[in-house]
């Protein structure tokens, strides 16, 4: 999430340093450090090796096999799991649902987050209260958010249906119809995301030099002109950072889906991660689920790479 990127301290051009010492990144590094390195880095490498590297390779390996019901590979099938997935209409529907969900969540989170940040950046009496409220959903965990929204969307007693019937609108079966169910999980996710997004964007707005606004105001720029030509360009690195974090988070959404719709109705909200869980742990189809994991990992890795590339570029100016 955090990505502090600072240029490395430049090594001074001090050629007279002792030969036995290697001068890198400005610190004296000793040849005898390797025992320390073992002690300092050993625990982390052991944990990452066991729970990150090994499972990554193992998932890749399993994705080429059929497996028994406890996840041991039985028959080598090559790329058949992948081909089967990419040609199945159910998986394509899942990809499509994930794309819709992710795009909607990212777009709404950013737009609303920016609106909140912009509103809270103005100096008005009592603005501190609004800032606190706007960041509040950062303290909400996924189960709590799901329960609050389940009630709001619940049939007939829920808030939306009560308002609807009061206004004599047709009753919407929020969580049992495909379209409304997707809308409901998107709304809930966006709500949950807003606290964090607000805090980050608000912080970025605070750092835009006031003089830029003053100068452009003298030149007669309207508030909306300032927003698009001063604010947005100035905070674009943070906007990009926030959108990547939100995007990756959306690809990994599991808890809300599990609690609110369990992938239904009719697989309308059966997103990629949820499908991995269903195929592996409910159907015992570990080979197929591994192939799904690999596809998911590749998609997320691509977006993360994009973010790294971007941050790298930023350091140079």
């Amino acid at each position: 999430m955090q990505a502090e990127v600072t240029p490395a301290p430049k090594p001074k051009a001090d050629q007279s340093a002792a030969i036995s010492r290697q001068r890198a990144k400005g610190y004296n590094l000793h040849a005898g450090d390797k025992y320390y390195a073992f002690a300092f880095l050993g625990p982390s490498l052991l944990v990452l090796g066991t729970f990150v590297f090994y499972p990554m390779l193992r998932t890749l390996y399993l994705s080429l096999f059929l497996t028994d019901n406890v996840g041991r590979p039985t028959v080598f099938v090559g790329l058949k799991n992948y081909i089967g997935l990419l040609t199945s209409s159910a998986y394509q529907a899942s990809l499509q649902a994930t794309a819709i969900y992710v795009i909607a969540v990212v777009a709404l989170t950013l737009i609303l987050g920016l609106l909140l940040a912009q509103l809270a950046a103005k100096k008005l009496a009592g603005i501190q209260w609004f800032r606190t409220i706007f960041s509040a959903t950062m303290g909400v965990s996924v189960s709590v958010a799901a329960i609050f929204w389940l009630f709001i969307f619940s049939p007939s007693i829920g808030l939306f249906d009560q308002i609807g019937s009061f206004l004599h609108l047709p009753i919407v079966a929020w969580l049992t119809q495909p379209g409304p169910a997707m809308t409901a999980v998107v709304i809930s996710t966006v709500w949950m995301n807003l606290g964090f997004t607000f805090l980050i964007l608000f912080g970025a707005l605070q750092m835009v030099p006031q003089s830029l606004y003053e100068v452009s105001a003298i030149e007669g720029a309207s508030e909306s002109y300032q927003f698009f030509h001063v604010t947005i360009p100035m905070i674009s690195p943070t906007l990009f950072f926030t959108s990547t974090v939100t995007l990756i988070g959306a690809f990994k959404s599991f808890g809300l889906i599990d609690l609110m719709t369990a992938g239904g109705p009719n697989n309308a909200t059966n997103l990629l991660v949820y499908r991995v869980y269903q195929d592996a742990f409910l159907s015992g189809n570990y080979g197929l689920a591994s192939a799904e994991s690999v596809i998911l990992a590749v998609i997320i890795a691509l977006f993360t790479l994009l973010q790294f590339k971007f941050l790298e570029k930023r350091v140079t100016y």
């Binding site: 499972p55 599991f254 592996a280």
Partner: peptide, 28 residues
């Protein structure tokens, strides 16, 4: 602060794992 063989390589390997979602590794 320490100097050892393969330090930079190891660091980039660890950096690369940040891209892998834990969710995709739950089976193994």
């Amino acid at each position: 602060f320490l100097s050892f063989k393969g330090r930079d390589f190891l660091f980039y390997v660890i950096l690369a794992t940040m891209m892998l979602p834990f969710e995709a590794e739950v089976i193994p």
